[in-house]
């Protein structure tokens, strides 16, 4: 009885809390369906939903529809996520478990790279990519993810690996496994939840990295969703309805990604791994 009742209490808390968190988003949905003259009214829902905000926004340009921009972005994301997941764990294992020369120094440098605001490195970086003819391409956006996925993810996985008992490594060593074997068979399965978070964050954060995208992508043919959204905002005039509609759609892939990926980072693999 008490267990069941406490369960309902938890559900109730969760429902109320979810609604509180999601309320602005419901407002957003309502606003995206409003005609311009209703936009300033406090009512959350329009008197007559204007679904044309979605269809007109989707086809706002004669040349390309949003389908084109979504597929561009998703293609880029595949590269980004693949690169980060592939390399972040490798690098993190090196830093977390292997005692090599100058490890402390390199790790310090790794952390330092996060502390310098990108606003001051982005111009030299642009000059660098320009001198090898790689601007107006996805390379400057995707390539960095193949080099460990960035300090944030490396440090994150380092912390997770440091939480794994060393007994497991030692047992594997006694069984004759090399460091590479330990990484592959012991560590990698255990940090899977952390890797899933790496995948999610890479996806979400590179989705609206506007500044880098506007610098490196010039032709509209290559535009991402984030860039296409800015086309609704001109110096004076903003296409409010279409902007709100399309930017709401633009977060849907990230939300889906989160929804489907989450069971992996909460599946409790770590526990079963420990027992094995």
């Amino acid at each position: 009885m008490t267990v069941r009742r406490s369960k309902w209490v938890v559900h109730l808390v969760l429902i109320v809390f979810s609604l509180l968190m999601i309320y602005p988003v419901i407002w957003w949905l309502g606003a995206s369906l409003k005609p311009l003259d209703e936009m300033r009214l406090p009512a959350i829902w329009p008197s007559k939903p204007m679904w044309s905000n979605y269809s007109d926004g989707w086809h706002f340009s004669d040349q390309y529809s949003f389908a084109h921009f979504f597929s561009n972005t998703l293609l880029m994301e595949v590269g980004n996520v693949f690169g980060s997941v592939l390399t972040a764990a490798l690098v993190a294992y090196g830093f977390a478990r292997l005692n090599f020369k100058l490890r402390g120094m390199w790790f310090g440098i790794l952390l330092l790279t996060m502390m310098l605001p990108t606003q001051v490195t982005i111009i030299p970086q642009y000059i660098l990519y320009n001198s090898v003819g790689l601007v107006n391409s996805y390379v400057p956006l995707v390539l960095p993810h193949f080099f460990g996925g960035g300090a944030f993810f490396i440090f994150l996985i380092v912390q997770f690996i440091r939480g794994i008992p060393r007994d497991l490594d030692e047992a594997a060593t006694i069984d004759g496994a090399s460091v590479y074997g330990i990484f592959w068979r012991v560590v990698l399965p255990l940090v899977k939840p952390a890797l899933v978070t790496v995948a999610i964050f890479t996806f979400i954060w590179s989705w609206d990295d506007f500044f880098a995208q506007i610098l490196y992508l010039s032709s509209v043919e290559k535009f991402t969703v984030a860039l296409a959204l800015r086309m609704f905002i001109d110096q004076f005039e903003i296409q409010w309805g279409q902007l709100l509609a399309m930017s709401l759609l633009s977060v849907v892939p990230s939300a889906l990604m989160f929804f489907f990926a989450q069971k992996h980072f909460v599946s409790g693999i770590a526990t079963t791994g420990l027992k094995g």
Binding site: I123, I127, L215, V220, Q235
Partner: peptide
Amino acid sequence: YMAWDGYWQKLPALAAS
């Protein structure tokens, strides 16, 4: 071509390079 904000963010990079 792009919108106003992006234009003035991008132009310095082009000038610098």
